[in-house]
């Protein structure tokens, strides 16, 4: 299962953001798209989800559909009138999952993401990290082939950020879905991305992450060397 970009181009008001992008996102892998603000990272996610259509080229879904791609927005967009349980129940009700199965799925996911004790809480009473986990759970509850995360930890403090990143990876490894994350945080990219895509000069530069499979990589020197290397790549000072 994969999503394929074929010579994809996009822009606003005749001004091109990117063009001639060719890339394949495979299910079961995690990709991080790194780039400066305004470079078109979120637009790329919208194209992958099918919210927007490319101006040139095509997006192909192989053995999957845009309906099996779920998006978690940067501003989360949790509805203020839905409790945590209701937020997770909504996608399942829309997909007509029966009540008993619904309950079992929601309970299991709430336990995995440690949000069970907030099941009857409204978003206004949740902390930033809890809201992020609820939004992620709402994306995961339908068991998508691909989960797209737009700046998932940008509003969190360092400790909550690291904890949230661990939740993201552990869910991905449990479920085996594809993960496409947009971020401008280099350290986050080095931690979450098996493949790192740097968007620059209207194109892609793709790197495999040499430290992704290291245990406790945040405590290794190699991890920070890679972060430094990514920083240079982002600035165009290294290839």
């Amino acid at each position: 299962m994969h999503i394929e970009l074929e010579k994809v181009g996009f822009g606003y008001n005749k001004e091109s953001i990117f063009e001639q992008l060719d890339f394949t996102f495979d299910k079961g892998r995690s990709y991080v798209i790194l780039g400066e603000s305004g470079i078109g990272k979120s637009t790329l996610l919208a194209l992958l989800k099918g919210f927007q259509q490319p101006l040139t080229g095509r997006v192909y879904y192989h053995q999957t559909t845009s309906k099996k791609v779920e998006m978690v927005f940067q501003d989360l967009r949790l509805f203020p009138w839905q409790t945590v349980y209701q937020a997770l129940e909504m996608p399942l009700k829309i997909k007509k999952v029966d009540k008993v199965k619904r309950k079992a799925m929601i309970e299991a996911l709430m336990n995995e993401l440690e949000i069970h004790k907030f099941k009857d809480t409204y978003p206004a009473k949740l902390s930033g990290g809890q809201k992020q986990r609820v939004a992620m759970a709402r994306g995961l509850i339908t068991d998508p082939d691909f989960l797209l995360l737009d700046e998932p930890t940008s509003s969190l403090d360092q400790e909550t950020k690291e904890k949230t990143q661990e939740y993201i990876l552990s869910e991905q490894s449990n479920r085996g879905n594809g993960l496409v994350i947009v971020t401008h945080d280099i350290e986050e990219a080095a931690f979450l991305g098996e493949t790192i895509i740097i968007m620059r000069n209207q194109g892609f530069q793709v790197y495999q992450n040499p430290v992704f499979h290291l245990e406790n990589r945040r405590e290794s020197l190699a991890f920070y060397e890679f972060v430094l290397q990514l920083r240079k790549m982002l600035k165009g000072e290294a290839e």
Binding site: F51, E70, M71, F73, D75, R77, F79, P91, G139, T142
Partner: peptide, 13 residues
């Protein structure tokens, strides 16, 4: 109603 909320719904249907 924020326009962005409709996009959440488009995620599912």
């Amino acid at each position: 109603i924020p326009e962005s909320y409709y996009q959440v719904m488009d995620n599912y249907s």
